[in-house]
Write a protein that binds this DNA or RNA. Structure first.
Lengths: 119, 119, 119, 119
DNA sequence: GTGGTCTAGACCACT
DNA sequence: GTGGTCTAGACCACC
């Protein structure tokens, strides 16, 4: 599956989100070795530099660690991954509820809206 | 209340969102006259050019109309405002549900999460 | 004065150090506007991209803030600058003393060594 | 005590520094036989190739000599060790004073700072 | 082979 | 004009 990007935010940031999301979701498992920068770049259809930038930025979160001359690994700290997962859920929910609340929807109304959606 | 901006997205877009949100919510009422570009710019703490650009862009949606030599008015087309309101709700919901679904949450689980939140 | 780099660490990191050092020292004053990326790149004799990278990394420290389409400014938070200055001094001293202590030098001996140096 | 490395500089260089520092300090004594590459590699927790590279590089300084089929020995040239010790001290001091001087500290101020530190 | 850095040059969005 | 992003391609150090 090719990666798809929109023009709303920089590609490297979208890559960040995608990869972090894959880690959070478990597609990339704790301790697992990541594909090489070049391979990931090909897979995502971007320049290796762009992929490189995205990856090194994720590094700052601790979710990824680099072994020089070897490759990149997903952190073995499952607790950290859990924290990110939790934070992601909370932030997404807060953002959504904030918007809806601004339009004076009550909690019950919001739940009612969601209930009617097929998924 | 002063307007607050973050550096993540263009200021004029954030202004757009704020103003449209005020129209949708009813803070700016249908048919009402808008403050002058200059005054709005001062209120928001931005360059008049930036405010100008934001307003003309909103104009493109039909939510705002200009009366030459007089000023800008919120559209009297309440149906249009309703449409925007509806679209905003749908987009926000879809975005939120998309993120949660990516983490394998079911609809029931999502509702359960929201139910537990105080608001 | 042209900027000089050694091959021991990446250029962009050396640029970081130089700029932070200039802020700490007061060569770049609090609130002052920085030269443009392109100009700084010319001054330092590096590619604009390299300078860009250095600057945006400094941004993360809060020492620099960016105004879109305008330019970069040294933070007005003098307390923050003071903190960095203090931290820099402490780290440098600790590193030096650590090395000397590893060779079993006493504090008095270290002071004696420094005293004999011309500066 | 296990060896600890950071990702800032090459591991083999960090190994160099550690071993040279042990020779300079006298932990590894003049004329003494060094453990085997394999054992040292295990002790340091690195790939034998890496340890090998570090050792051969130190060899270039004369601090270590290899006796084919026997092993590696710390040089018996105590004067050489002394020189390295001296050079290490001078370099460390110069680096430290350089940094402090860049912040406009006088020699007296530097000495005063050191005097106040507990060690 | 792997990650990391740098250059060169282009294009875009924002003020 | 300013910062920001992206591509392309090269080179290096490390394991």
């Amino acid at each position: 599956m090719a990666w798809e990007f929109n023009g709303k935010s920089p590609i490297f940031k979208q890559i960040n989100d995608i990869i972090i999301s894959k880690i959070i979701k478990g597609d990339y498992k704790s301790g697992e070795k990541l594909a090489s920068v070049r391979d990931l770049a090909v897979e995502a259809g971007v320049n290796p530099n762009t992929m490189q930038r995205a990856l090194s930025e994720i590094e700052g979160t601790g979710l990824l660690t680099t072994l020089r001359g070897d490759g990149r690994y997903i952190t073995e700290d499952k607790e950290l991954i859990g924290k990110f997962r939790q934070r992601f859920i909370e932030e997404s929910t807060a953002e959504f509820l904030g918007k809806m609340r601004a339009l004076d929807f009550s909690k019950d109304e919001i739940i009612s809206i969601i209930s009617k959606i097929n998924m």
